[in-house]
Simulated scan of single mutants.
Amino acid sequence: MQYSTTDSKRIGKARAPSQLSQVIKRYMTHKYFFIMLIPVLIYYIIFHYAPIYGVVIAFQDFKILKGISGSKWVGLDNFKELFAGMYFLPVLKNTLIINFYKLLFGFPAPILLALMINEVKQAAFKKVVQTVSYLPYFLSWVILSGIIIEFLSPSRGPINIILTMLDFKSVFFIASVDWFRSILVGSEIWKTVGFNAIIYLAAMAGINPEMYEAAEVDGINRIQKIWFITLPSIIPVIVILLILTSGQIISDDFDQVYNLLNAKVTSVGDVIGTYTYNEGISKMNYSYAAAVGLFKNVVALAVVLVTNTLAKRFSDETIF
């Protein structure tokens, strides 16, 4: 039996309401789950989407009393000042260097920790290690910064006490230009490594145990099982997280740097976050600070897009 074009259109129109009714029915069946999403949607609308309108002040000479609608439009003047000034480029350099080290050493750290935890056979010991490793993640940088400052104190810190006992000169690590970036990278890894390892442990839990059993029959040792079975199985997760993390190459952890930064290490520790805070809050230069923030976000988006494109070219795992 053959159908005419008119008949095909009639059948298509008949199917469309049927599909729509099925979608509506599914939504109604799970309506309580969608109701639970309402607070999340409200949060993102108020604190993430509504403030986007404020980006306009990056192109204005914003005055609080005049508001956005009454402030003078200056176009790209704030961005010209941004790149022509003598302060922003050193801050950008510090941000890129610190975040590059965090990406270089911090990204593989949770993978290594997850691999080691996954190889532990005693369940009780594994739980203890996991708890101890991800506990710092739930502490604020205000608390952790105090612990770090005390731990590295030149007079009462345990490291300097040991150095003094070994007839070495004590070092004021937190105020040392040579050590400050290492402290930022090390403390970031300490805080996040345990929590980030949970993602990789979850991916490892989904690996078929029969693959390991077959490998044991073939005489493969534990290192070879990790290299040929575990790592290839979690490559999709690693690639996706690498793409998402790449955007942080120009973003910084303001809470960490602000609580550890001091006048002696500003030359190597002042980053875009603290610079924007000083310009926008301390100096009340809102338009200039908004221009800095917009520049940072645009570059971060570009880095994510480029990384995603490269991942798409060399592998099948991408975020879009």
Rank of each mutant, 00 (worst) to 15 (best):
A14N: 13
T309I: 06
W73I: 07
P108D: 10
V298T: 07
S287A: 05
Y200V: 02
A302G: 12
L113P: 01
R313W: 13
T245F: 13
D167R: 15
V128C: 15
T5W: 11
Y49L: 06
L37H: 00
F320H: 10
I52S: 13
E188W: 08
I111S: 13
S153V: 01
K72S: 03
I45R: 11
W73S: 11
N208K: 09
A205E: 10
D61W: 01
Y101G: 00
T131N: 11
S8V: 11
N94E: 06
F59Y: 02
A123L: 10
G194D: 03
R15A: 14
Y258D: 01
V271W: 03
N259V: 00
S4L: 09
P232M: 08
L20G: 14
N208G: 05
K93G: 10
R26C: 10
I68C: 06
P90E: 11
V257I: 05
L301W: 14
V23L: 15
L103I: 06
L310A: 14
L166D: 13
I38A: 06
Y32R: 10
I240T: 07
K169W: 07
I45K: 06
F320I: 08
N118D: 07
A311V: 03
I161D: 15
P108G: 06
L103A: 14
L89R: 13
G157V: 01
